[in-house]
């Protein structure tokens, strides 16, 4: 589904990704986890084809990332909610629906799906932070893309909504959608089918949560992540 090979990215004269290789399998929820500044957004931008890359390749659905044919099949939610603050939730959704040749029904459905039915007529600028990022999420889900790339979609959501959103992600995956979801909250890692652990622009773990727990010899994913970091540092030293 997604194949990243030897990806090197430089941003502002600094090397941010140092030759990353990984594979995201189809029909699953893959979590991209790592500390702030580790390169999650940069990797995601490379996958959706808006990042200038230095070298290496990113292939999505068998085509180079960002190619025109992929724009119908890839949905992208940026980290900062990218919806129009001076439009209502409904107007935003209908505009993004129109970009995929879809109508008001699909747009309104997506708004309801993220739990914003009652706020549909409200200006996005007047929404709470969590509502705003759900409005942004709704706009990406409208086209029923084969690949959904979500950059920290659950930030600022309460536990109930978070559980609901993860339920929806898994329902989508069960229906064949592939999801790449970034997060820096470790308690979300356990909800993923697979994990990519990234640190300082390097992938330090690429496995199922169960295997990562087993390898590190702990049930706590956060602790497992820390042990992985320590063992990498040990190897480097």
């Amino acid at each position: 589904m997604i194949e990243v090979r030897d990806l090197v990215v430089e941003r502002g004269r600094r090397r941010v990704l140092h030759g990353i290789s990984c594979v995201v399998p189809a029909g699953s929820v893959t979590g991209l986890l790592g500390p702030s500044g580790s390169g999650k957004t940069t990797l995601i931008r490379a996958v959706v084809g808006v990042q200038i890359v230095r070298s290496g390749s990113v292939t999505v659905l068998g085509k180079p990332a960002g190619s025109a044919a992929l724009r119908r099949s890839v949905g992208y939610v940026t980290q900062a909610p990218s919806v129009y603050a001076d439009l209502s939730v409904r107007e935003n959704a209908r505009y993004f629906a129109a970009l995929y040749g879809l109508g008001a029904t699909e747009a309104d459905q997506a708004v309801a799906d993220v739990g914003l039915k009652d706020a549909a007529g409200q200006l996005v600028g007047n929404l709470s932070g969590g509502q705003r990022s759900r409005a942004s999420l709704a706009c990406a889900m409208i086209g029923k893309p084969q690949l959904l790339v979500l950059d920290e979609p659950t930030v600022g959501q309460d536990p109930v909504l978070r559980a609901e959103l993860w339920g929806r992600f898994h329902a989508l995956a069960a229906a064949g959608t592939t999801l790449l979801v970034s997060s820096h909250v470790m308690d979300e890692a356990g909800r993923c089918d697979r994990l990519l652990l990234i640190r300082d622009g390097l992938i330090i773990g690429d496995d199922t949560p169960a295997a990562i727990r087993a390898d590190a010899g702990t049930d706590d994913l956060e602790e497992a992540f820390l042990r992985l970091i320590r063992s990498q540092q040990g190897a480097a030293a």
């Binding site: 959706v48 084809g49 724009r71 990218s82 970009l99 995929y100 706009c139």
Partner: peptide, 13 residues
């Protein structure tokens, strides 16, 4: 600056 351009350019637009 709002990021909508980046997103729009990943759609069929």
């Amino acid at each position: 600056t709002s990021g909508t351009l980046e997103r729009l350019l990943t759609t069929p637009l």
